[in-house]
Every structure is written in C-alpha cells, then in structure tokens.
C-alpha cells in the first residue's frame, strides 16, 4: 500500500476560472523523496497547498499514512494533519528566535522533551551556534535550514517543500542541495518537493513527476 495517495484531484481558485489542477493523481512510498516539476503557473504550489490542507479540492481524495485527509465528505483541518511544510520564502516568525521558531510546533511535548528535540534538530541542521539569533540575523541558507528544522521537529508524516532554492544565490545552491539531501536521508523523511528547475530535482529526488498544463501558457 502506498504511503501517500493523491487521487483524481481537481482544483480551481474561482468558480468561473479553468481548473489549475485537473484530475491529477500520484502516489509516494514511505521514505521516498519525490520532485514535482513544472512551469510557473502549472499548479505545483497549489498541489502542495492541497496536501497540506491550506486549500480545499473541488474533487478527488488525498490519503496520507493510511488516513483519509480529504474526500467528498471529509476534511481534516491543517493543524491536525501532521504535515510539515517549508514555504517558498520560509515564513520564519520574525518575532521569535531560532530556538523559539523550531519549538513552535512542539507545544504538545513536555518542557524537557521539547528542549531535547530542539537540540536534536539544531544538530541535524548544524545551527547550534545560532540558537539565539533572530531570522533577520541569518543568511538565506541558514534561514532555509531553520525552516527545515522547524518543519521536521514535530515529526510530520510527510514534508512538503515549495521551491526550496528560489531565494538562494546560485553559487550556494550546489552545496545546499547535497546538504538537504543528506538531512532528508538521515531523517528518513517522505518528501514532496516542488521546483521549476530540473537540476534541483535531479540532485535531490529519487524520482520526479512532471505537471503539464496547457492553460498556463495562455497567460504568458
């Protein structure tokens, strides 16, 4: 049985517009890192938002770890899905420092356990020396690692990454790609990653899926 199953999902932003995602299906196995490739406007980000529960599909179903998340009659709220997400520009809370950001999703743990888990995550992303810094005091690559640690900390069943390299310098990309790959392997994380750059996906993912959309080109 597949770990994640997305079946016949259709999604549109407004009723009168053509669908952004039209009857899309795919599956992921446990521990697999899958990349989704497509031009801008092809609905890649919308797909991630659907899996996370930030958007509601018009049709179709999404199942994660044997549990139905959304279908015709059912909708599990974002906060109850146990899904981790790294946003395109990271969305680190500017009023919290690195430790507080990482601990944000650990509110259900006891204090000691929380502290331990944060420490673990800091070591995983190698930011132990930056624990008390605020997001604006970090470089782009460091911010990305904090975002990753924050998403991984509550041990989500699946990690979603939206254009994880778009806000980084080209010169940094190569080193960060391999770093990310290592972290994901170490954490044995099932991951769905979205990018417009085939090289990103090739460097990190086990396999890739291409989303094609004819409508998207019409706007260009």
């Amino acid at each position: 049985m597949n770990f994640v199953a997305i079946k016949h999902v259709t999604f549109r932003y407004a009723r009168r517009q053509p669908p952004v995602i039209d009857d899309f299906s795919c599956t992921l196995n446990k521990g697999e890192v899958v990349g989704i490739l497509g031009a801008s406007g092809s609905g890649k980000s919308s797909l991630l938002r659907l899996v996370a529960g930030l958007e509601l599909p018009e049709k179709g179903s999404i199942m994660i770890d044997g549990m139905m998340m959304v279908n015709d009659g059912l909708y599990v709220d974002v906060e109850n899905r146990g899904v981790g997400m790294v946003f395109q520009d990271y969305a680190l809370f500017p009023h919290l420092n690195v430790v507080e950001n990482i601990a944000f999703g650990l509110h259900k743990l006891k204090r000691a356990a929380r502290k331990e888990r944060v420490q673990e995550m800091l070591e995983l992303v190698q930011l132990t020396d930056y624990a008390k810094r605020y997001p604006h005091e970090l470089s782009g690559g460091q911010q990305q690692r904090v975002a990753l640690a924050r998403a991984l900390a509550p041990k989500p069943s699946i990690l979603l990454m939206d254009e994880p390299f778009s806000s980084l310098d080209a010169s940094l990309k190569t080193s960060i790609r391999s770093e990310l790959r290592q972290i994901l392997r170490k954490a044995e994380m099932t991951c769905l990653l979205v990018s417009h750059d085939a090289a990103d996906i090739e460097a990190i993912c086990d396999r890739s899926i291409r989303i094609q959309k004819e409508m998207a080109e019409a706007t260009a």
Binding site: L54, V78, E79, G82, V83, M85, F87, A91, G105
Partner: peptide, 21 residues
C-alpha cells in the same frame, strides 16, 4: 503575509492559537 498563519497551522496550532501566538 498570510504565510505566517499558514506556517503556524501546518505546525499544528489551531486558528485561535495562531492568532495569539
């Protein structure tokens, strides 16, 4: 930006909690 609220919710905080936190 809306992403802050969305990020908070993917980290398991409900709507009201996200507002206060």
């Amino acid at each position: 930006p809306r992403v802050y609220t969305e990020a908070s919710r993917t980290l398991g905080r409900g709507n009201t909690k996200s507002f206060f936190k």
